[in-house]
């Protein structure tokens, strides 16, 4: 299960709308336990694939180093990543799979149809090596903050 609050969920979807028709990408910071990955904060990242940003994304390693350092300072871990699929289903592609190396992390994909965020799915990268890795569908639990009683 991927646990995320509504504000962060909407923020990562909005990121995909802002960068449309190009792919957006970012990092999910939080904690993992037996119940899944719990997102506490999302961090937007730049897409270095300016040569083909409509169908490719890549986060610069140095940006990841700095985000991991930021997470450490907050007492959090990198628990996943997100990106958008402009005018393409919210399903992982062969490229997504080939480039996935963060076992135990959630890979969140939002389909952005004609500039509007549509379906958002999460996939958990399971396995221990390049040879046995698999993407598994991962349910998303969205926490909605209770409104203050008047």
């Amino acid at each position: 299960m991927l646990h995320i609050d509504y504000a962060n969920y909407e923020a990562l979807r909005a990121h995909g709308e802002e960068t449309y028709p190009h792919e957006c990408c970012g990092v999910l910071l939080g904690k993992s336990d037996a119940e899944g990955n719990h997102v506490r904060q999302i961090v937007r990242a730049g897409n270095t694939r300016t040569d083909s940003a409509h169908n490719r994304y890549n986060i610069a390693p140095i940006e990841l180093v700095k985000i991991q350092r930021q997470a450490r300072g907050l007492g959090l871990d990198i628990v996943g990543f997100y990106h958008s699929h402009p005018d393409h289903p919210a399903q992982w592609s062969p490229t997504d799979f080939a480039e996935a190396h963060w076992f135990g992390c959630s890979y969140v994909i939002t389909a952005v149809e004609k500039g509007k965020a549509a379906i958002t799915n999460s996939f958990l990268l399971t396995g221990t090596s390049e040879e046995d890795k698999k993407f598994r569908d991962q349910p998303i639990e969205i926490a909605v903050a209770e409104q203050a009683q008047q």
Binding site: D51, A53, R56, Y57, V65, F81, T95, H101
Partner: peptide, 24 residues
Amino acid sequence: LTIIPSIAGGTDAVSPCCSCCPSL
């Protein structure tokens, strides 16, 4: 030292979306 696996991907769509995005 920081060890950091790469993170990348994409849709595999082949047509360009605009003049700034060349087809693969």
